[in-house]
Each structure stands twice: as structure tokens, then as C-alpha cells.
Amino acid sequence: MKKKKNWIASLLILAVFGTNTLMTEAAVVTDQTPPPMPTVNKLTNKSFTISGIAEADSMVYVKRNSTYYLKKAADKKGNYSIPIPQQKKQTVLEVYAVDHSNNKSLPRKVIVQNQPKLKKRILNVPIVKQMPELPRGCEVTSLTMLLKYTGIKANKMTLAKQVKKDPAKLVRKNGKIYFGHPNYGFVGNMYTFNKPGWGVFNKPIEALAEKYKPNRIKNLTGKPFETILSYVSAGHPVWIINTSWFSRVPNSYWQTWYTSHGTVRITYKEHSVVITGYDSKYVYFNDPLDGTKNKKRPIKSFVEGWKQFGSQAISYY
């Protein structure tokens, strides 16, 4: 009788384990159904986002000209919105989704459409004065205005402390001038004209702006001025460096500095402002030095001065 009970118990154990094994095997069957092709809202050369609907909680990928560009997860309803810099018209983008089982949707091909630049645009960018605290702080004050326009509570004095500095001291020797390089940090003293100082170029300003808008800053240095106006047309002001005359400065005002990073051509006729608008004849900008909002200068002369400093410009997306 005892042997019979043991035999029955053994059968019960086998039955239980057999059932669990079958259940386990059924549980590991993975989803192999690809998600639907994402939708993409209208995309033009004035757009700053790619958006649409994909499978809920999937990862949305974007390729540009057949190369990986960026990605972002869709929310629980399938909505996605990915910030991007402005794209050139006719740029080809492919958008696809990948679900949690690593199934990939078919790609949605999108061609960036052309949207003509507005004939006139003037933005309401808050004015911030650099004086009296920052006699040489036009670059960080102009950045303050740009950041404030985006809704960030930026402070010019905080930015003045945070911007990278070039520690080089001014030395004049054998007819040569040795000082810092503005592409590597602010040169000299920003707070008083009683000590040597100059300013800073776009790279340290870009790095500082990135701290406030991570992965959303666009360095437009070297781009055509039409690109600068395209950003303004789309509602984004642009930080730039120009001559303080807002026109071409003769060679007699320029000098060569010798720095630990090589030589650099410098004129003290340098200034930074924020471009806030344009029309057919004029460029409009906020001038931190005199506190004038939407000051205007003829486009042709303004661009000539801007190009003398290497067409430096920064905006955001």
C-alpha cells in the first residue's frame, strides 16, 4: 500500500512539473510583430522639431541622408516630438520605430519642404544692459538676453563668472603683443577698463550656453547670413559678434596677438549683440552697451563687420 501511495505521489509531481514546463515554454514566445510605420507631421526648413505618432512606448529613430541622426521614446499614447536644428530644403529623413521586443517598423521617408523666409520679422527679446557692472561683458550679456527669451532665468553676473577664462597676462616684448586667445576663453578683465582685457569668441559662449540648454544650442559660425535670418524668421534670435561700428573696420585698427594657441588678429572695435529682426533694408538687434532694443543698421554694412570676425553666430533649437 505504501508503494502505491509513493507511485501516485510521483505521478502528481510529474504532472505539476510538466504543466509548469509547458507554461514556461509558452511564456517565452516573443512578440515578432513589427510596429506600424510612424506618422510625421509637416516638416519644413523652418521647423525645429520632428513630431508625429508611433507605437506607444516605442523608440523612434531618425536617419538623415541614410545616416543615424537622433532618437527619442514615444510616450504612452504614442506621441513623439524630437527637437532638431533647421534642416535644408530637400533634406531626406527616414523615421522608424523599434518596440520593446526589438521589432523594427518600416521607415517613413520625409523630404524637408521649402518655406520662404518672412519678408519682415522683429522679435520681442528682453533687453539687458551690460553697464555699469560689465564694461567688457557684451558677449555674456547678449547671451543672457538670448537665454531669457527662451524662458531661462539667466543672470549676466552669473554668466560672467561661469564663462571660461584664458589666464594669459598682457605682455609687450620686442614689438610684439602676447595675450590670450578669445577662442579658448575670455581674455583679460571683464569688470573694469582699468585693467587689460578684451573679450571672448563663440566657442566658450557655446559651451556656456550648453549648460543652460543642453543639446539644444546651434553654433552657426561660418554660415551664410541668410541662415542667420532664417533662424530669426522662425522666431529664434541669434547671438553674434560684430565690430562696434557695425560695419567694416580698416586694417589700421587691427593687430596680431601671440598666444599659447597661436596667433590671432584682433581689433578693439569689437562688440556682441543679439539679432532680433530684419526687413528688406535693415538688421535689428538688442545692444547691451547702450541698452537700445531693436536698434537697426543697414544689412550690407552690418554683414561686412560681422564677416570681419569670422561670421560668428549662435542660436538654439
Rank of each mutant, 00 (worst) to 15 (best):
P107H: 07
P107T: 12
K109T: 15
K109P: 02
I111Q: 15
I111V: 15
I111S: 13
I111D: 02
I111H: 11
V112A: 02
V112W: 08
Q113T: 14
Q113K: 15
N114L: 15
N114A: 14
N114G: 07
N114Y: 11
N114I: 02
Q115N: 04
Q115K: 13
Q115R: 14
P116L: 07
K117A: 12
L118E: 10
L118C: 00
K119T: 14
K119S: 15
K119P: 14
K120C: 04
K120S: 02
K120G: 05
K120Y: 12
R121G: 01
R121W: 00
R121K: 15
I122M: 06
I122N: 06
I122W: 09
I122H: 07
L123R: 07
L123G: 08
N124F: 03
N124Q: 06
V125M: 11
V125Q: 00
V125R: 01
V125E: 01
P126N: 05
I127L: 13
V128E: 02
V128W: 03
K129N: 10
K129H: 10
Q130V: 03
Q130R: 13
Q130L: 09
M131R: 12
M131S: 00
M131Y: 14
M131E: 00
P132K: 06
P132G: 04
E133K: 12
E133G: 03
L134E: 01
L134C: 01
L134I: 05
L134H: 01
P135S: 04
P135C: 05
G137P: 02
G137Y: 09
C138F: 13
C138Y: 13
E139F: 05
E139L: 03
E139Y: 01
V140S: 12
V140M: 12
T141D: 02
S142F: 12
S142R: 07
S142N: 13
S142Y: 07
L143S: 08
L143I: 01
L143K: 08
L143T: 00
L143Q: 01
T144E: 15
M145N: 06
M145V: 05
L146Q: 13
L146E: 12
L146T: 09
L146K: 04
L147N: 10
L147V: 05
L147D: 08
K148N: 14
G151P: 06
G151V: 11
G151E: 04
G151K: 11
I152F: 10
I152K: 05
K153A: 11
K153I: 13
A154C: 05
N155C: 01
N155K: 14
N155P: 07
N155Q: 10
N155T: 07
K156H: 10
K156N: 07
K156D: 02
M157Q: 11
M157H: 07
M157T: 09
T158A: 08
T158G: 00
T158Q: 09
A160M: 11
A160T: 05
K161R: 11
Q162G: 04
V163A: 12
V163D: 05
K164L: 08
K164C: 01
K164A: 13
D166N: 15
D166L: 08
D166W: 03
D166V: 06
